[in-house]
Nucleic acid binder design. Structure first.
Lengths: 353, 353
DNA sequence: GAGGCTAACTTATACGTATCAGAGGACCGG
DNA sequence: CCGGTCCTCTGATACGTATAAGTTAGCCTC
């Protein structure tokens, strides 16, 4: 037996002989009718099985959804799998919850399926992509909704929450320089989409479309360039992906060299942990024979052996502030840059002489 | 300068001297008009900066949102923080992504804020709660939307995806019995909301509103009851929360006893890891002096030292199947029970004689 | 050349609600 | 007794779209 359609507001109104407007007021503006009638209406609504004002029609009429959208570049599950993303999302989710806003995770455009960005039912977006693909950026702009970038602005000059990637990377590199390292390997994220693990011939000057990537390479150069002016050597390898295995694969390119680096700077803890794994596999002592520096200060960094020296950034706060910025009545137009800090642990030491 | 409102479909229609319906068809039903006119309309739309059919109005007209809702009992960020929840959510997210559905995380009702369940813009819900609070269940029912439970049905008899908690718990307990343990401690989840860590006087028969909790206690009893018929002792402690610290706190109640248990069954790996931490703190050797069994087989279980013996359940698949069930054209009315498996690692051994 | 068919549009309507502008009565002060 | 004010409630309208039903012209067939 197919259940008959749920009653509408007008049905409730008719049942009581009042106007639909009054029923609406009973639900939304108690001050617009007598308490007595209001109680009668709500009771009748309950008796009739009226589900309350239809959410879609309500949203349509009001023009507001009460939801925050989140756009990513990776498959949706990445948000629950990647340790750094998780921390950030926890911050995002917390503030959404506190505001009573739904959090709408918008899947990336799967081949064959239409992109959801043009149709997502949200009042604004947090864009957790670096950078947003141009087509999506266009779709996003068309929505004319407020957008706050996470880690990078959607378009230069637009509001975002992030860190000073360049300064953070500079500090990480400076730590190695201070320890006395002169042959240094850098493992960066992929410089372009769908690229394989590869030694980057252009080194730290390699062009890339990724904002944070670019800034971190600059930061490494800031510290390494002057220090290595005379001798030393820097080799940059772009990893294929973001996982530990990708870091290990990248490390292979560095460690197979006749004169391998005495230290490796990785752009994430996951990559760095992969490096440590690869080194361990080869019987290379960390930090005795090889120093390793990560980026993010993910929970696994402390737990690793040796505990990972890394750059701490306030992931959860980053996510939280992005949502706050988005939800602010008068949307901010400026960037919010959060502090970072080099956390020295057990994976770095002076090079063996 | 405030940007003027975006053009509407009718504006595009007027600009070209065609009807609004034709513009709609240009976007949705290409076969309803000549290719030539269609191209002209789409070009004009682009030129005018028309964002495309308004998502809210579109949803209103069509009556479908294209989104899957997810309801939880805990604060929203729990989904990104708890290891088991994360695994499950990854499965949920993956299937949503594959279907091109948005995933709407619905916050719990914060005091002072209205519950979002009555107004969430979704086509159906996955209820990741055990059990759903009665008020919310009522709100949910009022929506008349399809619902699939995760771990437990929203209402007995309704569709859900889960495991055979009783059999799984029975197997875990049987493992300890087989090893020869007769003094066994059980650390269960809280038996009621907002309760403190407490020794449960009713033991394995303690009443609780949580479905999985009940089933697992039953499972433990299935295996422990007969085996301990003669002697032995079972003490049940209900933990305060779900975190490692809560497991450690519960362990205190068990280990402070004059004749402490030789083995502990915890209802989650997190609780179990807390037990191991507490044991280590006291210099109690695991598994020499104390065997510990968890539940979930979370990533940290293998990584722990000693590696944790636990009950593996297919978290990601659970989440994936729940969404599949929800999205199926003809919603299933039956439960889907996924297999579990006791994974014996290094945290269990025969009791010291 | 009439009848019928199709392609290509248009007209009209409905989706369910919130809210603005009033209507009508009660009540009050003068 | 009259004008005004407040309190309740009603009528009408608009939100932006998708789509069923209708119209017109062109073409084909016999």
């Amino acid at each position: 037996m197919p259940s008959d359609p749920p009653p509408r507001m007008r049905d409730v109104a008719r049942a009581l002989g009042v106007s639909q407007a009054t029923v609406s007021n009973a639900f939304n503006r108690p001050d617009q009718l007598s308490r007595e009638l209001r109680d009668r209406i709500l009771a009748a609504a309950r008796d009739l099985g009226y589900p309350g004002p239809d959410p879609i029609a309500n949203t349509f009429r009001r023009g507001r959804t009460g939801a925050v959208g989140l756009i990513i570049h990776e498959p949706l599950q990445y948000l629950f799998e990647d340790p750094a993303a998780r921390l950030t999302m926890a911050g995002v989710a917390r503030v959404c919850g506190e505001h009573g806003s739904s959090l709408v995770l918008v899947p990336r455009a799967e081949p064959g399926l239409p992109d959801v960005v043009p149709t997502a039912l949200v009042d604004g977006f947090v864009a957790f992509c670096d950078p947003l693909e141009p087509e999506r950026r266009e779709l996003l702009r068309a929505r004319r909704l407020p957008v706050v970038g996470l880690d990078a602005p959607v378009t230069p000059g637009e509001p975002y929450v992030g860190i000073d990637d360049r300064a953070a990377a500079r500090a990480a590199a400076a730590h190695l320089v201070d320890l006395g390292h002169r042959r240094i390997g850098v493992i960066s994220f992929a410089l372009a989409r769908d690229s394989e693990t590869t030694v980057v011939s252009a080194g730290l000057d390699a062009p890339t479309g990724y904002v944070a990537n670019r800034a971190r390479l600059d930061g490494y150069r800031d510290a390494l360039g002057p220090a290595l002016g005379g001798g030393g050597r820097i080799v940059v390898v772009a990893a294929r992906g973001v996982e530990e295995a990708d870091g290990a694969a990248a490390a292979v390119h560095l460690l197979d060299h006749a004169e391998p680096p005495t230290a490796i700077l990785a752009m994430s803890d996951r990559l760095a942990l992969g490096v440590i794994a690869e080194a361990t596999r080869r019987g290379i002592d960390v930090p005795g024979d090889l120093s390793v520096v990560g980026f993010d200060d993910v929970p696994a960094a402390v737990a690793a052996s040796p505990a990972l020296t890394t750059v701490r950034q306030p992931h959860a706060r980053k996510g939280a502030e992005a949502v706050r910025m988005l939800l602010r009545p008068a949307p901010t137009r400026t960037a919010l840059i959060l502090p970072t800090e080099v956390v020295v642990r057990a994976s770095t030491a002076p090079p063996r002489t």
